[in-house]
């Protein structure tokens, strides 16, 4: 009986660990890209996406937004509310939404202070991987 209970808890622990790992992998499964020569570090990227920086022109990747929210540890509701507030309070333009990696890369390439995130950097993209 005791062994049965132990194995039951062990199974639960294993499941939780796997979920945690999967979660971690999921959250880190995006690559931040910056306009060439204008790379931001991890802290700056987080600051930009939490609506505190004036300078970067940041872009949202519609297909990957759940992963960004996981990275920021925010819900969709909190994320949108935060941008609405900063748009009203500080005239900070919310991120432009692009539908996929290719559009995000195009935006970052063409904007001096462009910052975005993709699943993987397309071959030949003229951007810098940043946020490290």
């Amino acid at each position: 009986m005791k062994n049965k209970m132990t194995s039951h808890y062990a199974a639960k622990l294993l499941t939780a660990s796997l979920l945690l790992l999967a979660n971690y992998a999921f959250a880190s499964d995006i690559v931040f890209i910056c306009h060439k020569g204008n790379a931001l570090n991890a802290k700056e990227i987080r600051t930009a996406y939490t609506a505190y920086f004036d300078e970067p022109k940041i872009v949202d990747n519609k297909a990957l937004r759940p992963k960004l929210l996981q990275y920021l540890n925010m819900s969709e509701h909190q994320y949108k509310k935060m941008w609405e507030k900063q748009y009203f309070r500080r005239a900070l333009t919310p991120p432009v939404v692009k539908k996929d990696d290719r559009e995000v890369v195009d935006y970052v390439e063409s904007h001096d202070a462009g910052v975005g995130y993709v699943a993987e950097v397309p071959h030949g993209a003229d951007v810098e991987v940043c946020g490290k």
Partner: peptide
Amino acid sequence: EESLIEGGTPLR
């Protein structure tokens, strides 16, 4: 549903 900017200038 609420959406962030899809393009253009949002009048809020």
